[in-house]
Design a protein around this nucleic acid. Sequence first.
DNA 1: TCACGTAAGTTTACATGGAAACTATATCGC
DNA 2: GCGATATAGTTTCCATGTAAACTTACGTGA
Lengths: 153, 153
Amino acid sequence: MARKTSVSELTDHLGYWLRLVSNNVSTAFARRLEAEEVTVAEWFFLRALFDVDELAPSKLATVMGMTRGAISKLSDRLLAKRLIERSDNLDDGRAHTLRLSGKGRALVPKLARLADANDESFFGVLSSEEQAALRRALEKIAKRHGLNHTPVD
Amino acid sequence: MARKTSVSELTDHLGYWLRLVSNNVSTAFARRLEAEEVTVAEWFFLRALFDVDELAPSKLATVMGMTRGAISKLSDRLLAKRLIERSDNLDDGRAHTLRLSGKGRALVPKLARLADANDESFFGVLSSEEQAALRRALEKIAKRHGLNHTPVD
DNA sequence: TCACGTAAGTTTACATGGAAACTATATCGC
DNA sequence: GCGATATAGTTTCCATGTAAACTTACGTGA
């Protein structure tokens, strides 16, 4: 992790390498998504809605690990692009419900293929065993730290 | 990496896990650095200067993988905090030289210990062998994609 | 039933970083 | 030497996210 001696170097930290690779993977993915005029955050948002049919913004905030404010703005953008629909909740005057529009639902599989291709382009340099080990390590850390990829309850 | 069937899930992508863990590691580190009123980007900046004595902003941009504009603004902030010094280059009227101030140099070891502790808190849940494997995998990807942690030439 | 505390969303104020335009200075080719 | 081009840094504009204030609506307890 870090040298024992004096002042550790940037590259001594696994966090450094994680950040370096992660930022590059995300940036490269963002470039691919540009073709569909969608951002990485929007992809997460749309994919999260894909298998639940409808979801409250606050739940989405939890799932995505973002603030409600950020979800509010993301929703505005996706609404403007007609990729989602937002409706008032009849039971609760405060609550809203978000769902994919037909256009949004149709787009998700295409975005998923872009995600597949991006993942492959980076992690394809690793053997299957290395990929599995990487996944295990990351999941282990996520689990031990209670990181949210929180299932929609 | 991704399921063969229909629409891949978020968690199918290693990029998803990488981003999840990386963002959490960085955020946690940022919290620790708050005690010293320094950001993660500023830590990188200061640590990069630590062993070279002086460096041009444009070099730093390359090393840090940021734009010159970002470095310019980072420099302004670090100057305001008196952690670095900036001087005009005598040979070249366009060029500047950045170096740590005494205060900045004194701070780096403290920040390094915070980085060590943060890394330990996340990656300590992995065995030495797992940590080594993670490092190898990340370095392999970085190398194959020419990601910059570019040594100062 | 109504006052108070809580919850859902939105909005505002900030912070930060990229892209591209802009300024000043070098350097190259002739 | 000088015009064209490139380079160093800065600045402006924009996008995006957090934190916290704010608005509205619930729910609960006496």
